[in-house]
Design a protein around this nucleic acid. Structure first.
Lengths: 140, 140
DNA sequence: GTGATTGCAAATCTTTTGCACTAAA
DNA sequence: TTTAGTGCAAAAGATTTGCAATCAC
């Protein structure tokens, strides 16, 4: 075993983002970044932390998700007006979203093409193009 | 003048949607559908109603927006996790969205093309593809 | 130490709901 | 009448915030 990889990865990420590696941030970073691309809500991450015996308040989870997002470690995905989703995949990509089971799934950025985007309104510049492919459970 | 056009239009829409044409629904329908394509939030519509001397509660505005949406008279646009937007344009189209000034602007459906949408996840079917072109005020 | 971070509880904001009252059919 | 719709106030969720206690450096 090559040391405690998830732990040192999390530590390195926090240091790179200039975020003080507190117990809570390290634990959340380990949960978030040790298992590939993930989509979480504040509540789902809080539950997962509790299940992993990590004591952290929901308020801190919210704060941490926003700090990670501001630092570029995650991005927010707007697909549901009822709740905010956060994605550990910060590269250019899009999403499938199924409202019925709150399933969010990545679509690689180069798998889908958006063509002929018109010029943005006077006085503005495009910052990002988000595509959400909404799906339904088949036969419903 | 050809009668009270906005009024009879609103009435016809409600009848077609099988929604009882109450004073509140008629007034809101007139505000929404008499001035071309519109994007509103519950609060903005409520304020506009009050400004037009239409007495209606915010709860009724919420209920009405959802009823209109269910009836296919409007559609909801998910662009901002902080609040819900509703669009009187129900045809196939996309949006520009500027978070800074909460500006929402239509992109005609045929002005933009989404190509190579991958197959949806096992057991699901695509219901809609939404494109949000996020913009920033130039020079910010 | 000391300044950043956390936890908690309270506050805030959007949206929904229960129920007595009102109005359309 | 009869039933749907409305207003209000209260409830419900999600998210943020104030502040004393705690932790990283």
């Amino acid at each position: 075993m090559i040391g405690n990889r998830p732990y040192s990865d999390a530590l390195a990420r926090l240091r790179a983002a200039k975020l003080r590696p507190t117990r809570q941030r390290l634990a959340l970073a380990r949960i978030l970044f040790s298992h590939g691309d993930r989509h979480v809500t504040a509540e789902s991450l809080h539950n997962e932390a509790l299940a992993n015996h990590v004591r952290v308040s929901l308020a801190t989870v919210y704060n941490t998700l926003h700090q990670f997002t501001e630092a570029g470690l995650m991005r927010e995905v707007v697909v549901d007006s009822a709740r905010s989703y956060f994605d550990t995949n910060t590269s250019h990509h899009h999403h499938f979203f199924c409202e019925e089971d709150q399933m969010l799934k990545d679509i690689p950025g180069d798998a889908l093409a958006v063509n002929h985007v018109p010029a943005p309104p006077e006085g503005t510049a495009i910052s990002r193009v988000d595509v959400v492919v909404r799906v339904r459970r088949a036969g419903s």
